[in-house]
Design a protein around this nucleic acid. Structure first.
Lengths: 134, 134
DNA sequence: CAGTATCCGTGTTGATACTG
DNA sequence: CAGTATCAACACGGATACTG
């Protein structure tokens, strides 16, 4: 069957929001950023993403993410008819543009991390004081 | 209790990925983009987001999103002690930077929509033909 | 290796009711 | 108006087993 055409709740929404959701999805972000560096094979990509920490991505989710991005024309899938199978994933021109935007966002996040953490400490401290006054 | 400190699955991950998830989250994206235009009150923001289509955001999710973004230092919350209550939300300088990145991504998505839809048609057609050869 | 298919737990979400 | 609290549903994501 076809890859998901609708949002999580199945409701209609303007089409460009869907693409935005695909691109900014949990694994979509990481896939695009990795592929920005170079093409990857399936398992290779899975390992690369695992290095970001956490549990990493399951085969199922990676497959799903790649299919969605391929369908949107952002990722190119090159399946070589050899045994054992070999499939290379790379970005299309369109995908490269998307990935660069995502990368910019990730870079910004990285640069501003100190400010964010400072804000978080201030926020938590304020709440701490407030709850103390119960 | 404190606002979510961990990812969906509860696992540890590098801190900047968390911020990225907050910013690119389902409602985070829309909140940031709306606030980039001007400050909003709570319900006003809820209505504005509903106009994007779909079911819109629930009060709970909007609250949660705003709290997360506030804690990260991206959103400023200004609660006036009046009756009935009035709370204005706006972007901090940090938040404005984030929102601009997000906006750029959304704009790109919008501009490239035609290409994406073309790719989707091609993808679906290819699968159609393949399934016909069963 | 690179998937697909299936089942299933659980977290995220949303509806509802309630408070200040 | 601007939330908080509680509960139920459902989609997401993961584990496993299987295929080409």
């Amino acid at each position: 069957m076809a890859v998901s055409e609708v949002g999580p709740a199945g409701e209609a929404m303007c089409p460009h929001r869907l693409v935005l959701e695909h691109v900014t999805s949990r694994w979509g972000v990481l896939v695009l950023m990795e592929l920005l560096e170079r093409p990857y094979r399936f398992s290779e990509l899975r390992r690369a993403i695992a290095d970001y920490g956490g549990r990493g991505v399951s085969e199922k989710m990676l497959t799903q993410t790649l299919q969605t991005l391929e369908r949107d024309g952002l990722v190119h899938r090159d399946a070589k008819p050899v045994i054992p199978p070999r499939v290379d994933y790379s970005l299309t021109d369109l995908g490269r543009e998307a990935a660069q935007q995502v990368k910019a966002l990730a870079t910004w996040t990285n640069e501003r991390m100190a400010d964010v953490e400072k804000a978080r400490r201030a926020y938590d401290e304020a709440r701490e004081i407030q709850s103390r006054a119960s």
